Computed example of a mutant assay.
Amino acid sequence: MKRRPSGLQRGLRWIAWLAFLGVAIWKSDSTSFGGLEFLALAVAVAITVWCLAKPMGPHKVDLTSPAQVRGEFSSRTNWAWVLVGALLTVAGVGATGAIVYDLSSGRADVGDVLTDIGVFIEGWFAEIFTKGFYDAELEKTRAYALAILLIPGLLLLWYNLIPLRHRGKRFLVDDFGEVRTKVRDGWRSLQPQRFTTATADGTTITFDGARGEPKLVLPQHRVYSVQHGVRLTDKLSAAFFTEHLTARGFTVEESGPAGFTAHRNDGSPTYTQPQ
């Protein structure tokens, strides 16, 4: 069976690529890569290849059916893409601020801004297509074109911070298919009979309580198995909870590949809140 990279390998990979990024920023005033940048890049690539070729973590497990949804699950944030989005956003904000300042102070007009953007983009593509043999002297431009990075930066931040904004409760599925949710002192049985409706929208699964029972929110976006590190897709999560609720007296209506609305049948057992 295939293995996944261990925690140590993932940590080394993070450190290597962050070190390369730091060196690249530190040497950003240079017109081309130097020996230190190439060394940092080579180390990062070598560690990444090693992690892929010789993973030392637990065996890789794929979740493909509701019957395989067992164990503990929690939502995760992809901090690597959050970091990339933050860097792009900072660069975009800086360039946008420079444009606004130069226009307001008279250092440049709209024509100058558009010309600088065109020169930067043309030179950037020229350096890419010539693989670095042609120096477009981009450092001599005002880099107004970097303002474009604000759009992908904000989109990356918005998309990758969804799990952080809609984390929901960590949950566990035991060997019998019963669902438990994380509470401060352990685990509490989900007991679907406590709720009148359940709604999944691809981001969260929300259980609306009956008789004053508070809402319960479970994550559905970027949910991973704690034991195996494999992702529980939103579609498989919807399929599992559809079966789970149907077997416990709910009528489930699908609303898309990863969404559903479930209503408790009148004849199903009801939950009485302890006095």
Rank of each mutant, 00 (worst) to 15 (best):
W14Y: 03
K215S: 10
D116P: 11
I148R: 04
S74Y: 13
A86H: 05
Q273E: 13
V113I: 15
D29R: 14
P152R: 10
S30D: 14
W81A: 11
E253P: 01
V179Y: 00
L216R: 05
F129L: 15
H263A: 14
T96K: 03
H244C: 07
K235W: 06
R3M: 07
G92C: 07
P257T: 07
T196L: 11
V45Q: 10
F176L: 07
A98N: 09
A238K: 12
L172K: 13
I128G: 03
G256H: 05
A24Q: 09
T115R: 05
A198C: 12
E254V: 08
R10I: 02
K235T: 15
D208M: 11
T181V: 14
V61H: 02
F241T: 07
Y134S: 09
V23D: 06
T206D: 07
L154T: 09
A95P: 04
E137F: 12
L190T: 05
F125N: 06
L190M: 02
G118V: 02
R231V: 02
A44D: 03
T64V: 10
L161R: 03
G249H: 04
T242G: 11
A258I: 10
A24K: 08
D116R: 07
R70N: 13
A239C: 04
R70L: 12
A145F: 02
V90D: 05
E37R: 05
G153W: 08
D112H: 14
F73A: 03
T261F: 09
A108H: 07
W26N: 09
R248L: 14
L12R: 02
T115E: 03
K2A: 13
L155F: 14
T141Q: 01
T246I: 14
T251I: 06
L245N: 08
R167G: 09
G132Y: 13
P163T: 06
F195Y: 15
S75F: 00
